[in-house]
Simulated assay, not measured.
Amino acid sequence: MPFKKSLPEWNKEGTEPPQSLKDSGWQANQKPPADYFNWFFNKVFLALSELQKEAVNEEQIGVPNGIATLDQNGDLPLTQADNIKNWVNQLLVTASQNGLMRKEDKSKLDDITLGTAAGNALKLDSSGKVPAGNLPGATTSAQGAVQLNDSYTSTSTTQAPTANALKMLYDYITANAQLKKITADNGDVSISVADTTQDFLAAVVSKGVGLNTVFCEGGAVNAPSTKPAWGISYFSTPKFGFIYMIDTSNTQWSNFMKNGNWVGWSANNTATWYNLPLNNGAVPYNPAAVPQYSKIGGFIVIRGALKGITKTGNVYATLPDGYRPITYSWSYIQNATNTGGFANSARWAINTDGSIVLEFVTQGAANMDAGFWFPMHTVFPVF
C-alpha cells in the first residue's frame, strides 16, 4: 500500500557545513547559520522522497501487481512465476517456428556425436566449412563436388572448366576457326531463290565473299536450268567466284564470274568412256568403232561395233558393276550386215549380271560370218 505521511518538502539547497563541524557538532552558546539548516532540511526531504519512490511496501510482496520474493534457495517460486512460465512456453521451438529448446530436445542433441566419420553428425572445419573429404565427388552420372580446371585442353571427366578457361577457348576459336555458316541453322541452303521473278545471280553476288549453299527454282531470272537446282557458290572477292549446281534431271551446271562479269551457264555432262571387255572371239569392227560404255546422268550409253561373231547365245561382252541394268534385262534390236541385198537385224540382251548376249539374227545363225558388222548402240536407265 502507498505511504500515508506527506513528505516535509524543503527545496532550498543551502550550504553544506564543513566536515569539521560535521565531526564536532554544535557547541554551547553557538548560533548555527541559517544556510546550514537549509542544507540539512533539503537533504532530509530528498532522502525521504527517494525512499518512498524506491522502497517496496511489505504488503506488495507476492500479490498481484506486486513483486516476487525468492525462496530459501534464492530461487523464484513457481507459484509466483506462472506468467513467466506461460511466456516461456510461447517461446519454445515448434515445427513451424524457431524458439527456445526443451530439456528433452537438448538431451537428444547431447547424444549426437560430431565428427567426419560415417554415422556422425558432420562437424565443420576451423573455417566453418564442410571438410572436402566429406563431399561426394561429381561424375558424369552423379552430382557432387567438383574441382575447377583452368585449362581449355583438359580431357578430365571429373573437373569443371573455369570461366577463364571458357574465355580462352572462345578466344582460340574466334582467332583460328572459320565461323561463317554455309547453311541455315536448320540445314537448308544459305541462298534460296524460289520466286521465278527474282534474279538468281544477283542474289548470289549480294551474299558477298565466302562459301554458300544455293537453291534456284527452275525458270528464275538467270537460272541455270528450267528445272530446280541445288549447289554451292564461292567468291574469293566480290568480282571473282563460281557457282556449281545440279538440277533434278542430274544435269550439272557451272558459271564463273571474272572481274565482275559472268561468263554464262555451261552444262557439264561431258562423258567419260571406257572400253567394253569383249568375249568369245568378238573384236572391234574397226579402230573407229571400238565398243565403249559410259554413264551420263542416270543412263548407261553403249557405242561401237563388233565382228568375229559366228553364233547366237554367246556372251560377247560384259559390263562392270554399277553399269548394269538394275531390275530387269535390257533387250534391244540393232541393224546388222546386209546379205543378198536385204537388211538384217540382231537382237541383243543386256542382263543384270552385266553379260551382253546376242540372242537372234534375221539372216539365221547358220549364215553368220566372222566379218559381219554388228553395231551395239543403245541407252538404258539405271534408276
Rank of each mutant, 00 (worst) to 15 (best):
Met1Tyr: 06
Lys5Asn: 10
Gln19Met: 13
Gly25Ile: 13
Gln27Asn: 13
Pro32Phe: 00
Pro33Thr: 09
Ala34Phe: 09
Asp35Arg: 09
Phe40His: 10
Phe41Met: 15
Lys43Gly: 06
Val44Asn: 11
Val44Pro: 12
Val44Asp: 15
Ala47Glu: 14
Leu48Thr: 05
Leu48Asn: 06
Leu48Ala: 05
Ser49Arg: 12
Ser49Tyr: 05
Glu50Lys: 09
Glu50Gly: 05
Gln52Ser: 09
Lys53His: 04
Lys53Ala: 02
Glu54Tyr: 13
Ala55Thr: 08
Gly62Val: 02
Val63His: 00
Pro64Cys: 00
Leu70Arg: 13
Asn73Val: 01
Pro77Ala: 03
Ala81Met: 08
Ile84Leu: 04
Asn86Ser: 10
Asn89Met: 08
Leu92Met: 10
Gly99Cys: 01
Lys103Ala: 11
Asp105Cys: 06
Asp105Val: 10
Asp105Ile: 08
Lys106Val: 01
Asp110Tyr: 05
Asn120Val: 11
Ala121Thr: 06
Leu122Glu: 03
Ser126Val: 12
Ser126Phe: 10
Val130Asp: 02
Ala132Trp: 02
Asn134Cys: 14
Pro136Trp: 07
Thr139Val: 04
Ala142Cys: 04
Val146Phe: 07
Val146Cys: 12
Thr155Pro: 00
Thr157His: 01
Gln159Pro: 01
Asn164Ala: 12
Leu166Pro: 03
Leu169Ser: 11
Asp171Met: 10
Tyr172Met: 10
Ala175Val: 03
Ala175Asn: 00
Thr183Leu: 11
Asn186Cys: 05
Gly187Asp: 03
Val189Tyr: 03
Ser190Asn: 11
Ala194Phe: 03
Ala194Ile: 05
Thr197Tyr: 13
Ala202Tyr: 01
Asn212Trp: 08
Val214Trp: 10
Cys216Lys: 02
Cys216Gln: 01
Glu217Val: 05
Gly219Phe: 03
Ala220Ile: 02
Ala223Phe: 00
Ser225Glu: 00
Pro238Ala: 08
Tyr244Phe: 09
Trp253Arg: 06
Phe256Met: 08
Met257Arg: 13
Val263Cys: 02
Trp265Thr: 02
Ser266Lys: 12
Asn269Gly: 14
Thr272Lys: 15
Leu276Thr: 15
Asn280Pro: 09
Gly281Phe: 09
Tyr285Gly: 08
Val290Trp: 11
Gly297Ala: 08
Val301Gly: 02
Ala305Trp: 11
Leu306Trp: 12
Leu306Thr: 11
Lys311Gln: 13
Gly313Ser: 12
Tyr316Ile: 15
Ala317Asp: 09
Thr318Arg: 15
Asp321Gly: 02
Tyr323Met: 12
Arg324Gly: 10
Thr327Val: 12
Ser329Thr: 13
Trp330Leu: 07
Asn335Ser: 13
Thr337Gln: 14
Gly341Asn: 02
Ser345Asn: 14
Arg347Leu: 12
Trp348Cys: 11
Ala349Cys: 11
Ile350Gly: 06
Asp353Glu: 09
Ser355Val: 03
Val361Asp: 15
Ala366Thr: 15
Met368Asp: 09
Phe372Val: 02
